[in-house]
Design a binder for these strands. Structure first.
Lengths: 224, 224
DNA sequence: GGCGGACATTACCGGCCGGTAACACCGCGG
DNA sequence: CCGCGGTGTTACCGGCCGGTAATGTCCGCC
């Protein structure tokens, strides 16, 4: 129904956009290929000319999320070159956006719930993306001179994943409302340990993170 | 296939057991009623004599999880009467069991992912159960004399939910492997604040949680 | 004994879904 | 002008799914 997303986009891109929206809202198994094609302003035949199967479309959908996450990381590095404290703060902004964007949670995690077959190629993509995110966050913490950077990265990951799934079940007034506060406290506590044991490795960095209120510079499409 | 779960159980209970297992492994939308009936050693007709519809069965399935969680809380209170520190530690044991049980995550959270319709009655059950869990945990923290008990309960909730979903996507060697350590640290840090500001309200309670290794006394069926 | 209720069996229905075939159209470059 | 590749349209297929009907069977209980 409707001439959705006409622009100058080719059918393939329109299909991917429609799939992104519908998979996000209704789940992988909750929407059929015909619905996606029509939402993209085309039809099933054209869809199957660009994608071998629904599973193939799902994989392209997951890869699309991957490139968006990559752009997020590039933005962070571009906006705070060499400033690891700033990059960590920017990551927090992104994380908070992820939590508050809507109450459907993380597309990757949701896809993992529905891809119950361990052999599904989508599962490997999801695992790779989540691992990458964890590793990049750990690298960021390490370069920021924080002790036990992997532990901090894991803790922040757990808090973020938990906040997203919690928001999905009990809404925005549940435990997820404490995500930012808690994440900041955790970072501060790790940094405090650093200032006790060794001198700050990054020159002139304040070890306080709170104070300045976090605001988004650009709306990244909240999946990760 | 096969005479599953014959025992002395009536068809209704066998169906609920089979539904529990299959919904957990394949998701709500990933298994049909006929499969469930056959796994329960009966057939579709009998299933529909006990449940009005598949949605009705799903609701019974969710309520079944609810009673199991209630039993968990009763066990905790029974095994550590009046000892809030012990109850909190027991909750941690339960939480760790939830994380390490398998890599399919939380049945309630998974169900929320698949119940994409906001009007589905199952969503209200899930929300109620998750809220109850949060409130009981907060009450436990409060009675343990911990300052900001709600904040601690929310933090532990986020860590637990995050650990379960993370294990589902990147496996047991990912961030979820740090769940217990982090949760213990968080509890300790909240308790430390307590010993600075006010005397412990529970008589003679040690404010240290680590040291003694956590072990499960009884295998509770890991959903919550 | 026989009666009633719970359970089994089989067959069936309509609908949706993933996927395909066949054909018509249209614009662009040779 | 022709051809061709990308697209739209319609119809179709087999399979599965949620749900129902009719009938038969067995077992306990009066």
């Amino acid at each position: 129904m409707s001439e959705a997303l006409p622009g100058t986009l080719r059918p393939r891109e329109r299909i991917l956009l429609a799939a992104r929206d519908l998979f996000h809202r209704h789940g992988l198994r909750g929407v059929g290929v015909e619905t996606i094609a029509e939402a993209a302003g085309t039809n099933k035949m054209t869809l199957y000319r660009h994608f071998d199967s629904k599973d193939d479309l799902i994989i392209a959908y997951l890869r699309g999320i991957a490139v968006e996450v990559d752009e997020m990381w590039r933005d962070i590095e571009r906006n705070h070159p060499g400033d690891m404290q700033g990059q960590l703060k920017a990551w927090l902004v992104f994380a908070e956006e992820c939590v508050t964007a809507d109450d459907r949670g993380c597309d990757l995690a949701n896809a993992a719930v529905e891809l119950t077959d361990d052999d599904h190629p989508g599962r490997r993509i999801i695992e790779e993306l989540k691992s990458n995110h964890r590793n990049r966050l750990a690298a960021l913490c390490r370069r920021a001179g924080i002790p036990q950077p992997e532990v901090l990265a894991d803790t922040l990951t757990l808090l973020l994943e938990g906040a997203r799934v919690s928001r999905q079940t009990v809404g925005s007034r549940g435990p997820s409302s404490n995500f930012i506060r808690t994440a900041e406290k955790v970072i501060e506590s790790f940094m405090a340990r650093s200032s006790k044991t060794a001198a700050a490795k990054t020159a002139g960095a304040k070890t306080k993170l709170s104070g300045t209120r976090l605001t988004a510079k650009r709306v990244v499409h909240k999946r990760a």
